[in-house]
């Protein structure tokens, strides 16, 4: 059984104004995570990737209406009664956020922060939790864990704090970890280290990982499979290595081509226009206005995701473009 099953997820936000029309923030998201699998969700701002995470944690604003299915081990998340939801949030899933400084109470010690969740949910008592935290800290390469536990957040560097966040997330032994841009605020060398620790821990414990990022290079390197999001829709899904080597959706291909290369001077191919949000997309494919391959059909009819082998692509022309897009990546 899959750990997480998302099928045709749709999220609409009711307008704050009385007569305003609802806004679609997620149009069509489907993805699955098997136990121990790392799945990357890649997208630009407004693509709905963070909203997807919120939907999984049932943390959407109250004015949101959710459609489609969201299941954790076959149990519907939106239908979970209060007690199950509390257990789901405290013990089965953990979150790692982008900015650790904004998510750690600056007035309490690292130790308090790490064990608060597991103690509050009754999983461990204080002494057990502290001991487990120490063990975990050593696992993630923190020297002198005892001292760290009594320190305050401002005494730690950003990279170290993010490691604390990983420890906090793993302490309740969750089955699934949701990481929302966990390294975006960090320097590249620290990013490398934090990602190494995260992927190593995830693999050792066979925990599922949902990794949200805007960085396709990073996601491809650390995940098993990828979902590329654009305007609230997963436009392409499949094994990371395959997508990276041969994108089937023009948006994925464009994202890869727009990234400047560190090894050669080559004018990055920019995507015209700006990233659009789901509610701005009209009738047709949301990417049509920025897509060099768009035809009439693309502007009038929204492409449904179609699965061929391990890949799912939402593009009318994915079959005919296969060779062209692969060519673009090799060039």
């Amino acid at each position: 059984m899959n750990l997480l099953d998302i099928e045709h997820l749709r999220v609409d936000l009711r307008s704050r104004e009385r007569r305003g029309a609802p806004r679609t923030v997620i149009h069509d998201v489907s993805l699955t995570i098997a136990p121990g699998e790392a799945v990357g969700v890649v997208g630009e701002s407004g693509s709905g990737k963070s909203m997807t995470v919120k939907a999984v944690m049932r943390l959407l604003p109250r004015r949101a209406t959710v459609g489609g299915t969201l299941e954790f081990r076959g149990t519907s998340i939106p239908a979970m009664p209060g007690r199950d939801l509390a257990r789901f949030r405290s013990q089965l899933v953990s979150m790692i956020y982008q900015d650790p400084r904004a998510h750690i109470n600056p007035l309490r010690t690292i130790g308090d922060f790490l064990i608060e969740g597991v103690v509050a949910s009754g999983q461990m008592n204080r002494a057990e939790a502290l001991e487990a935290a120490c063990t975990l800290l050593r696992d993630v390469g923190v020297n002198d864990p005892q001292r760290r536990l009594s320190q305050y957040p401002h005494q730690l560097s950003g990279g170290l704090l993010q490691r604390m966040m990983i420890v906090m997330a793993l302490l309740p032994s969750p089955e699934l970890v949701l990481a929302d841009e966990p390294t975006t605020a960090l320097d590249v060398t620290v990013q490398s280290e934090v990602m190494a620790i995260l992927t190593e821990q995830i693999r050792e414990r066979s925990v599922g990982l949902l990794f949200i990022t805007h960085d396709l290079d990073l996601a491809a390197a650390v995940t098993d499979s990828l979902a590329v999001m654009h305007a609230g829709t997963v436009v392409e899904r499949g094994p990371s290595a395959d997508i990276y080597a041969a994108p089937r959706h023009p948006y994925t291909a464009a994202l890869l081509a727009s990234r400047p290369s560190p090894t050669s001077v080559a004018r990055p191919v920019s995507i015209p226009g700006r990233p659009v949000s789901a509610f701005e997309a009209g009738e047709g494919c949301a990417f049509a206005s920025r897509c060099p391959y768009a035809i009439g059909q693309c502007r009038t009819e929204r492409p449904e995701p179609r699965t061929a082998g391990t890949r799912t692509v939402a593009c009318h022309r994915s079959d005919e473009l296969e060779a062209v897009l692969a060519e673009g990546v090799r060039a």
Binding site: E44, S45, H214, L216, L255, P268, S270, I271, R274, R290
Partner: peptide, 10 residues
């Protein structure tokens, strides 16, 4: 954003 970054860089 990545796609816009390329525009401004160019």
């Amino acid at each position: 954003d990545v796609s816009v970054q390329a525009q401004v860089l160019n």
